[in-house]
Amino acid sequence: MKSKLKGYKEIPIGGLILDAGNAKTYKTGGWRSKRPILDKSNCINCYFCWFYCPDNSVDVKDKDVKGFKLDYCKGCGICAVVCPKKCIKMEDEDKFEE
């Protein structure tokens, strides 16, 4: 887990971060205590879950909502509340632990 820290000679002047959007390599999924479960049978692809998600963790491929990027989902449950068809359920995360 521990990444190697850079020495001062390797860090750009001013501590600039030159790699835009590299927070993607930091996984926030471990914060989650509730996991969103999508029931695709009722989904009308309104994209509200994708649109409201604070963590961009709703997976949409070819204009179709596929599920959730669990590496990033923090389990806030906003998607379940805004879903007009109520087809997202929040379930306790510990159910999924092996």
């Binding site: 993607k24 930091y26 926030t28 604070p54 963790s57």
Partner: peptide, 16 residues
């Protein structure tokens, strides 16, 4: 333009 992996609280309004 604002990627996943930021560390704002779950349910925060600001990233939205």
């Amino acid at each position: 333009k604002l990627t996943s992996g930021h560390r704002l609280c779950p349910g925060c309004g600001a990233p939205i």
